[in-house]
Design a protein around this nucleic acid. Structure first.
Length: 196
DNA sequence: CGGATTTGACCTGCGC
DNA sequence: GCGCAGGTCAAATCCG
C-alpha cells in the first residue's frame, strides 16, 4: 500500500515541495514554547526569509529565549506547574498549501475567523487514539504566501509515516520532551529536530 | 456506511 | 457585569 494513496496531504506536500528547488522554503520560522519555562527557537521574519532563501531551507534554526513574552495559556486541563507540560511549536512556512503534513494524521475539528487576519484559522487534532496533540493552521496575515502552523502538545506515539517508511521513531515515547518534524520522509536531509 | 469535514452554537478567558 | 475574541463541540453534510 502506497502511503501517498493513504494520505493525500502528504502527497501534496512531498510531491510539490522539492528540497532542491529554490522555491522550497521550509519552516523558516520556528517557535517552541514550553510551560512554565518557555523557550523559543526562532528566526526573525526578515532574517529568516533571507537566510531561508540563501540556504534554500537548509533547516538552519536559531535559538533564543523568550521568557518575557509568556502569554501562552495552558488550557483544557493541562497543568502548568507540575506533571504535564504544555509544549508549543510554531512554524512559519512559505507554501501555497496550508496543510503541512508531518507524517501524522490530523482530524479537523474547527475553523475560526481571527481578528486582524483576512484568513481563517483551522484547528486540527491528532486522530491517533489517545493522542491529544493539536495544531492550528492559518495564513500569515502579513504575507498570505506564508502559512503559520502551531503544534501544541507532544505525540505519545510514533508517526505512522516514519514507522511506515523509515522504521525510525519520529517521537520517542520515552522522552516526552523530544520532538521532530519531518517535512518529507523522502527528504532525509529535510528535518528539524529538538531534543532538550 | 463509516470516517472526515463543515459550520453554527456554545464555552471560557480577558479587558474595560 | 458585559462584550469580544479565541477555542471547542457536535450535528449535519460530504465523500470514498
Amino acid at each position: 500500500m502506497d502511503y501517498y494513496s493513504e494520505n493525500p496531504n502528504y502527497t501534496q506536500f512531498s510531491r510539490n515541495m522539492d528540497p532542491s528547488s529554490s522555491e522550497f522554503l521550509l519552516s523558516d520560522y520556528l517557535v517552541l514554547d514550553e510551560c512554565p519555562d518557555q523557550y523559543s527557537f526562532s528566526q526573525s521574519t526578515e532574517s529568516s526569509e533571507k537566510s531561508a532563501s540563501d540556504h534554500h531551507a537548509s533547516g538552519f534554526i536559531e535559538a533564543r529565549s523568550r521568557n518575557n513574552t509568556n502569554k501562552m495559556k495552558c488550557k483544557n486541563g493541562v497543568k502548568k506547574n507540575n506533571e504535564e507540560v504544555c509544549q508549543r511549536v510554531e512554524f512559519r512556512t512559505k507554501s501555497e498549501l496550508e496543510i503541512m503534513d508531518d507524517g501524522f494524521k490530523w482530524r479537523k475539528y474547527g475553523k475560526k475567523a481571527v481578528k486582524n487576519s483576512p484568513n481563517p484559522r483551522n484547528y486540527y487534532k491528532c486522530s491517533s487514539g489517545g493522542c491529544t496533540v493539536k495544531k492550528r493552521v492559518e495564513r500569515d496575515p502579513k504575507d498570505s504566501s506564508y502559512v503559520l502552523t502551531t503544534y501544541e502538545g507532544v505525540h505519545n506515539h510514533e508517526s505512522p509515516c516514519v514507522a511506515h517508511y523509515n522504521q525510525m521513531p519520529l517521537m520517542l515515547p520515552s522522552n516526552n520532551n523530544a520532538w521532530t518534524l519531518q517535512a518529507s520522509a523522502h527528504s532525509s536531509n529535510f528535518s528539524s529536530s529538538y531534543t532538550p
